[in-house]
Amino acid sequence: MAKLSLSDLHAIREREEKNLKKRDIHGRTVHVVVAMGTSGIDAGAKLTLNTIADDVEKLGLDNVIITQTGSAAPNPEPVVEVYSPEEGLTVYGSVDKNAAHRIVEEHLKGGHILEDLRIELKDKEQ
């Protein structure tokens, strides 16, 4: 096995400190759910989901789990739900690509709810 240099050790420490800091900031898992029913897909939920996945990957938000659910009609789709230990459930409506970027950057990374995108979830019709 090759010997580690001092600069290698510094790099490892820096990386691990960054990881630890990330865990300290977020604490516990945040769950993101994208509604992917017919109306959601029609409104662009595929792009919304891919944008969130891209950004979560790029930012290395290891505490975020992304899943999908069925239709969120009659709510304004694409609908994205965020469950976090601190704020509980937040529901966002009309989440286009730009809004998806903001949710990841401001809510998932920054911990701030985006009030302008927030909606009250109406019951799904049976």
Binding site: G37, T38, S39, D42, S71, A73, P74, E77, E125, Q126
Partner: peptide, 12 residues
């Protein structure tokens, strides 16, 4: 029979 905005997949 699924409600508003639903069940249109096959038609689309």
């Amino acid at each position: 029979t699924k409600g508003e905005g639903r069940g249109r997949g096959l038609h689309i």
